[in-house]
Structures are given as structure tokens and as C-alpha cells.
């Protein structure tokens, strides 16, 4: 019998702390599959975030460090500048990347650091129990927006990927989702491309992944898939936001 699917070599054989229906497991797996396919596991150094993925170093079978909240792009900069032939990526949530670490994100991107960022956007702070994220939708109820996010008081869902695309230092930015098999396949393609951009020394690449957080959205895992489709996609449209590689060809 031919084995067509198994655990990626880059994934540890352990169970995760993630809630039922959480998207992190899928995104972890896609990253690991891509690293396996590119044959770069032994030269990869990952930077894990503060947030639900804080324990990523327990799930990945490659060298991983753990940064302070918001600082992964600065940490990755230090790593990559010393070891330019290693593959360095950050794995960050919306609070890490687009709130507390906005400056580090913008400036690593603007310097065109040759690193890859996997940006998991689930519109909420999961680990701390469901507070407003910079990407929380208008009207979305969280612990810190109990009547729903009011833009007059709390601003608007930030489209950081579009903002980063304006910077001359960025090479490749795409937004994907992991709420359906079709979207998951597209997400994998984008993640692979982002790593290839780095392998070819083309500069800063980022994939924003819209992901589910049924626990902090107060919905079932199944409803969470629809929540992405019906509520997140109108605010955060999928697709390539910037691609200097293809447009230069």
C-alpha cells in the first residue's frame, strides 16, 4: 500500500495545547510541509511569538527561539544578519505583529530584511482570553469591547499587510485563509512562495493567514469556518497584495 500522507518530518509527534477548531495546528502543519518540501529543516531557525503559539518550539522539529511580545522581526534581523545562509522565519499573531510589535514589523519590512513572516490573523487575543486585537472587526464583541468594537473609541481593524505593501523594502505579501480545503491548499502555495523568496535572497516576505478562534469568537468550530468566510473575508480580502518577484519578470 502506498502511503500518501503522514506527519511532516518537521513536526514533533506530540499533541498541542490548541482548542478544538483552532487554526494554528493547520498553519503549523503547512509551514512544516513547506520546510520539508524545500529540504531546509536543518538550516531553519524559527522565531516563536508571545500568544497562543508561544509553545511552537515544542511542536517543531527545527531550531526555534522565543522572542518578547512584538519583537520577533528584530530578533530575526539579528539572526539573519549573522547567519545569512540560514532560513529565518517569524510566526506571529495579530497582537504581536500589528499592535505591540508594529514598529519592529514596519522597520524590518522597510529594511527589506531577507526573512519570512507568517502572520496569523484571527481578529482576537486568544491566549489572554479573548480581548480586542488590532484586527478585531467593527461590532465584534470581545472582553475589552463588550458592546462590540466601536471605531469611534477603538479604531478600525488594521490592514497591516496592505500598509506593509506600500514600503519599498517588501518583496512578497499575500493574504490567505485556512477555513476550507481549497483555501488551505492556496495558503500552502503562498507560504512556499514566501520561503522561496527568502531562499532566492529577494527580501522580506509575509503571508497573512486568516485563521479560526472559535473559543474567543464564542462559536462552534464548524461555525468558525463560516465566520471567517462571512465576516472576515469582506474586511480582509484574500489574494496577492504585493509581488515584486513576478512583476519584475
Amino acid at each position: 500500500m502506498k502511503k500518501i500522507l503522514g506527519r511532516p518530518e518537521s513536526m514533533q509527534d506530540v499533541s498541542t495545547i490548541y482548542c478544538p477548531g483552532c487554526g494554528h495546528g493547520i498553519v503549523h502543519r503547512l509551514v512544516c510541509e513547506v520546510i520539508d518540501e524545500l529540504g531546509i529543516r536543518e538550516k531553519t531557525i524559527a522565531v516563536a511569538p508571545v500568544g497562543c503559539a508561544v509553545l511552537a518550539y515544542q511542536y517543531w522539529k527545527f531550531d526555534t527561539t522565543e522572542a518578547a511580545h512584538g519583537r520577533p522581526p528584530a530578533v530575526a534581523t539579528g539572526i539573519k544578519r549573522i547567519l545569512p545562509d540560514r532560513i529565518v522565519f517569524t510566526y506571529q499573531g495579530d497582537g504581536d505583529l500589528a499592535a505591540i510589535g508594529t514598529a519592529e514589523t514596519v522597520h524590518a519590512a522597510n529594511r527589506g530584511e531577507n526573512i519570512t513572516t507568517i502572520f496569523v490573523n484571527n481578529a482576537v487575543y486568544g491566549m489572554t482570553g479573548g480581548q480586542m486585537a488590532p484586527t478585531t472587526l467593527i461590532g465584534q464583541k470581545t472582553l475589552t469591547t463588550p458592546s462590540g468594537r466601536d471605531p469611534k473609541l477603538a479604531g478600525y481593524p488594521i490592514k497591516i499587510s496592505e500598509a506593509l505593501a506600500q514600503l519599498d523594502g517588501t518583496t512578497y505579501i499575500e493574504r490567505v485563509a485556512v477555513n476550507s480545503p481549497k483555501n488551505i491548499l492556496k495558503a500552502k502555495k503562498a507560504i512556499k512562495k514566501a520561503f522561496q523568496v527568502q531562499l532566492e535572497n529577494r527580501g522580506f516576505s509575509l503571508v497573512e493567514v486568516l485563521s479560526m478562534c472559535p473559543t474567543a469568537w464564542w462559536v462552534s468550530p464548524e461555525e468558525a469556518l463560516k465566520w471567517v468566510e462571512e465576516r472576515m473575508l469582506p474586511e480582509f480580502p484574500l489574494g496577492v497584495i504585493k509581488d515584486k518577484v513576478t512583476s519584475n519578470k
Binding site: R71, R81, E104
Partner: peptide, 22 residues
């Protein structure tokens, strides 16, 4: 390597990265 960082927060975090690779 010389980097003029965007802040002191970033500078020390860059050291964290460069130091952990030796």
C-alpha cells in the same frame, strides 16, 4: 554588522537574535 535600529527596544532584541546564534 551595524544597524541603526528603530528603537532601543528593537536594538536589544536584535542583540538577542545575534547572540543566540553565537
Amino acid at each position: 554588522v551595524f544597524i541603526q535600529s528603530e528603537s532601543e527596544l528593537a536594538a536589544i532584541s536584535m542583540l538577542y537574535g545575534a547572540s543566540l546564534v553565537g
